[in-house]
Nucleic acid binder design. Structure first.
Length: 105
DNA sequence: TACATGACTATCC
DNA sequence: GGGATAGCCATGT
């Protein structure tokens, strides 16, 4: 496990239930632009329950691939149950459900 | 070391 | 609003 992944997992695990974050925000929190690398870190996520990767969406509110192309549509319903409104693989009130990291900088 | 890949983002049409 | 293109960074071969 790389230190980069640790940072990603650490941040994602900080996202409270009913909230979501974006790859871009994570990038900001990590002070990097490795959005894709973040996605990859999550896809090889060894700590599935610890790291709620289903709470990470794309910057435009789209769910991305973790529950879209992949057969994980159940996670979408889980988000809805947690309070996040989802409409056709996309977060409805992104601004409302968006969790912003208060990172030092 | 160099090239290819991807759960992305921003921009242009 | 939707599709195509280019730029990004971390990983794996």
């Amino acid at each position: 496990m790389t230190s980069f992944q640790k940072q990603v997992y650490s941040l994602v695990s900080k996202v409270p239930a009913g909230k979501v974050t974006t790859y871009k925000l994570l990038g900001q929190a990590l002070d990097t632009h490795a959005y894709q690398a973040i996605g990859q870190a999550l896809k090889v996520n060894p700590n599935a329950p610890e790291v709620p990767c289903h709470r990470v969406v794309k910057s435009n509110g789209d769910l991305g691939g973790y529950s879209g192309k992949l057969n994980h549509s159940k996670k979408k319903e889980l988000l809805v149950k947690e309070g996040v409104k989802i409409k056709r693989n996309q977060v409805v009130n992104l601004s409302e459900s968006l969790f912003v990291f208060k990172y030092p900088k």
